[in-house]
Simulated scan of single mutants.
Amino acid sequence: MTKKKLAVIGLGNMGRHMIHRLVPQYTDHIELIAICDRDESSLQKEAAEAGGSPQLYTDYRQLLEEVALDIVYIAVPPSLHYDVARIAFEKGIHVFCEKPLANSLEEARSLVELAEQADRIHAVHFSLPLEEPVLKMKSLLESKAIGEIRMMNLYLEFPQWPRAWQQNPWIASRQQGGYLLEVGIHWIQMIQQVFGPITHVKSEIEFPEDASKCESRVQAVLRLHDGTEIHLSGTDQREGEERMSLVIQGKQGTLALENWSQLQLGDKDAADMQPVSVNDVVSPLPILKQFIQLMNGEPGVTFNFHDGYNAQVVLEALRNPAEGFTDLVPSLRFHS
């Protein structure tokens, strides 16, 4: 089998994870032949640790022009996603992109169209719907373990933003940072996959006086296609440890996914919550494995640019509130 030629563009947390943790698992299928980051010292250091002999670039345009590729992994800041993906599609390259899909709804819509025109495989690196606790949660909901869902609460609460380990020039910016964009997008997309379309959003959002800084507080209601409401609470001033959780209140019980991976089940008043084992669940992750299967003409499970766009529709409604509920249906793209 001929190995697929991969380039990684951007060496933040996710780019480093790709070259050091994921790529080494699939060396029979892919070859890392180029890496790009504008910080040359970081580029040299990470390439040396990764091993092999990838070509090194500080300009992604030059890389995409000079290197023959099958797949590009985009892990640059959101404001650059559009340009990198656009060039890749023009070159006939498959695209695996970090979230969010783009830096605006207009860019996201255009990327969906470019992906369709290029007829290349395209995916956004959403993994939460395929994690074992979420798959178990979905199974319990389908078996009516808590009865009919009454409402949900989504908590995106942090003692500070960005976190201490998460410092970079853009992650606290209003343009392309903030916890809604960085963290909330994962939960939005997972909710869309598990519960169906979010069709209406009502949001109240507070920003610091500094116009360059991202959101501080968010209170919102996300309404599903069936009328179920999800009440969102977001802050960067939480007392104690951060909380990223979805609590689902049913007529006969409560199911909670706490801090990404801790699944809990309790009574309808959310009392006596007990951990739920997920040892019987098999996840198809990582997404890279699924992407490789698709490239090889095999079945694979990924979330494509349509899914990325639909998550961005909700994200932008949260970040740019209108009076009352915003109807998202005209903007959503429904696809098979």
Rank of each mutant, 00 (worst) to 15 (best):
V221E: 14
G253W: 03
L154P: 04
D226W: 01
R217M: 09
I205M: 09
G250P: 02
A145E: 07
S203V: 10
Q219L: 08
A256H: 05
E157G: 00
S245Y: 01
N168K: 11
W161Q: 01
P169S: 10
Q193R: 12
A256T: 12
Q175T: 15
M244P: 04
K213C: 11
P159M: 05
V247R: 13
W187G: 02
L180A: 09
I230F: 09
I146M: 06
I198H: 10
F158R: 00
H231A: 04
Q176T: 11
I185G: 07
Q189R: 14
T254Q: 06
Q249V: 14
S216M: 05
Q176A: 11
R150Q: 13
L232R: 02
Y179G: 00
I146C: 04
I188G: 03
G147K: 07
E229G: 03
V183I: 15
G184P: 08
M190E: 11
Q160K: 14
E157V: 00
F158S: 01
A211G: 15
I188T: 12
A211P: 15
R223A: 05
Q175N: 15
Q160N: 13
E157I: 00
H186E: 06
V183T: 15
K144N: 15
R174L: 14
Q167G: 03
F195D: 05
E148T: 11
A256Q: 12
H186P: 08
Q166N: 15
G178R: 13
G240C: 00
S233D: 04
Q176C: 13
R223P: 01
A220T: 06
Q189G: 07
C214W: 04
G253F: 02
F207Q: 08
S216V: 11
K251R: 10
Q249F: 14
A172R: 11
S245M: 01
R243P: 00
A164C: 08
L246E: 04
A256F: 04
E242W: 13
G253C: 09
T228V: 14
N168Q: 10
E239P: 00
Q160G: 03
T199R: 06
T228P: 01
T228I: 13
L222H: 11
Q166M: 14
D226F: 00
R150T: 09
H225L: 07
V221P: 05
L181G: 08
I205N: 02
Q249A: 09
G177L: 02
E182Y: 11
C214F: 02
G184W: 05
Q237R: 07
P159W: 10
E204D: 12
A172L: 10
W170K: 05
P159L: 07
V183E: 15
W165P: 01
E242H: 13
W165A: 14
F195P: 01
S212N: 12
E215G: 03
A172I: 03
S203C: 05
I198N: 10
L154S: 01
A220D: 03
M190W: 06
G147F: 05
Q176N: 15
A145G: 06
V247P: 03
Q189P: 06
G178Q: 12
P159H: 06
V247T: 09
E242C: 02
